[in-house]
Design a protein around this nucleic acid. Structure first.
Length: 279
DNA sequence: CGATTTCCCTGGCCGC
DNA sequence: TGCGGCCAGGGAAATC
């Protein structure tokens, strides 16, 4: 379940490999989520960026420095990107794994492969910066590490919705990049009840703001959290799964106050929190 | 129009 | 061993 730290880890590995490479061929699974993959063929990669959980591969069709298009990739729940080495015969390049949803051959002979067992991922090739077809991306909140994400922005965003604070954080509209794992971790660290529907005072907003940044930063330092499918570009796992303090620990003791962590469902999302110290 | 619900997917796990 | 049932969950479409 790649969230911001996982996607950023992949981006950092992918960017130097793809920059300057031209897509010489491509294929997409017939599902609408992947079928557009070949639209990138013939373009050259300028940079590999990221917004929230979206990878944004800037493309140029005319060889100039100015991107003309963008390959947008969302890894969903189980999406994995890998670079396959060149094979002797071009006809043997096509990946044969059962769950490959898209692939692109590169002008250096390698193949970029998008594997996604559960097909919750998606991709699109769009004119540069044209995100109207991707509603969540088009309405994405600020990057958590961007100075424009402030305690006040967080506070205002929470105050503007009647949804629970957990659901508000997952909406991607207040701040980009949080998924179920890091939302639970940040709320625990800030001592805030995920079911809360009322606004936060400025002091608690400062605390949650800090917690969100810290949780994501630490996970990034660890190369992300691998629970099931997540792998970085070279196939290795992250290390942050050993540092989770609430996610997946329902029924165990809270590491802060010792109370038993409770797991419930909030808006169809499994949520673990501490009834003892999250208010 | 914002909020809520439904749907998309399949490997892994559980119980019988 | 085999198998039905259930769970995980981000985002978009459908519905309220």
């Amino acid at each position: 379940m790649p969230e911001l730290p996982e996607v950023e880890t992949i981006r950092r590995a992918l960017a130097p490999e793809l920059a300057g490479r031209t897509f010489t061929g491509g294929w997409g699974h017939p599902s609408a989520k992947f079928v557009g993959a070949p639209d990138a063929v013939g373009t050259t990669v300028r940079t590999v960026g990221r917004r929230g959980k979206y990878l944004l591969v800037d493309l140029t069709a005319d060889g100039s420095d100015h991107p003309t298009g963008q390959l947008v990739v969302h890894l969903g729940m189980s999406g994995v990107l890998a670079l396959a080495p060149p094979t002797a015969a071009p006809s043997e390049r096509r990946p044969t794994d059962r769950h490959v949803r898209a692939w692109w051959t590169l002008d250096d002979g390698r193949t970029l492969v998008f594997n996604d067992v559960r097909r919750f991922g998606r991709l699109a090739v769009v004119p540069y910066g044209e995100h109207r077809s991707l509603a969540t991306l088009a309405n994405l909140g600020p990057e958590p590490f961007d100075p424009r994400f402030t305690p006040q922005v967080l506070r205002d965003g929470i105050a503007a919705t009647s949804r629970t604070i957990k659901t508000a954080l997952l909406s991607q509209r207040i701040v980009a990049g949080l998924g179920n794992i890091y939302a639970d971790e940040a709320l625990w660290r800030a001592g805030i009840d995920p079911r809360r529907r009322t606004g936060l005072g400025i002091e608690r907003s400062v605390g949650l703001h800090r917690s969100i940044i810290d949780v994501l930063e630490e996970a990034l330092t660890q190369g992300g959290t691998t629970l099931r499918d997540y792998r970085t570009l070279d196939g290795s796992t992250g290390n942050n799964q050993h540092r989770l303090q609430v996610y997946g620990r329902g029924g165990s003791a809270c590491l802060r106050c010792g109370a038993t962590l409770r797991t419930t469902v909030i808006d169809a999302r499994t949520t673990t929190w501490c009834v003892g110290c999250q208010r």
